[in-house]
Computed example of a mutant assay.
Amino acid sequence: MPIRYLKKHAALEGRIAAEDAEGLQQWLRAQAKPAVALDKCEQVHAAVLQVLLALRPALQGRPTDPWLAAALGLR
């Protein structure tokens, strides 16, 4: 399962496909303080990246892909 929805955050793991973008968007909008854990994330589809950039949840950890980390403003 590429996204695990937990009590305090959504954990993105491995490669996250375009099909996951809508579910992530809905979950983030439903949270009072949305957060996403990226430490096990290898790659995301552009649609998922757009959701993260548009909704700006709190980000935990760093993805393994340096380009993705830079795109999310994680230096």
Rank of each mutant, 00 (worst) to 15 (best):
R62A: 02
G14Q: 06
V44H: 03
R56N: 13
K8W: 04
L52C: 06
A17V: 14
A35K: 05
Q25H: 11
K33P: 01
R4T: 01
R4L: 07
A58E: 13
P2M: 03
A10P: 06
P34W: 02
A46D: 13
Q26G: 08
V48E: 08
R29K: 15
P34N: 11
A70R: 15
D65M: 03
Y5E: 01
E19V: 13
A17T: 15
R15C: 08
D65Q: 04
A35D: 08
A30S: 15
Q31S: 10
A10R: 01
K7E: 12
V44F: 08
A58M: 05
R62D: 04
A32S: 15
C41G: 01
L53Q: 09
G61H: 12
R15G: 00
A46W: 02
R56V: 12
I3Y: 06
R62P: 02
C41Y: 07
L53T: 02
L49F: 07
L72S: 04
R56S: 10
L74Q: 08
A35E: 10
A30T: 13
H9S: 07
P34G: 02
Q31A: 07
L6K: 11
A58W: 12
L24E: 04
G23A: 12
W67V: 10
E13S: 12
V51D: 03
A32P: 11
A47Q: 13
I3A: 02
H45D: 13
V44K: 01
A47F: 04
R62K: 14
Q60K: 13
G61N: 05
L24D: 09
A58C: 10
L53A: 06
L68S: 07
I16R: 00
A11L: 09
L49C: 06
V44P: 00
V48A: 01
A18I: 14
I16Y: 13
Y5I: 00
P63E: 10
L59F: 14
W67F: 10
A70D: 10
A17Y: 12
L55P: 00
R75F: 06
A18F: 14
H9W: 10
H45Q: 02
G61A: 07
Q43E: 11
Q25Y: 14
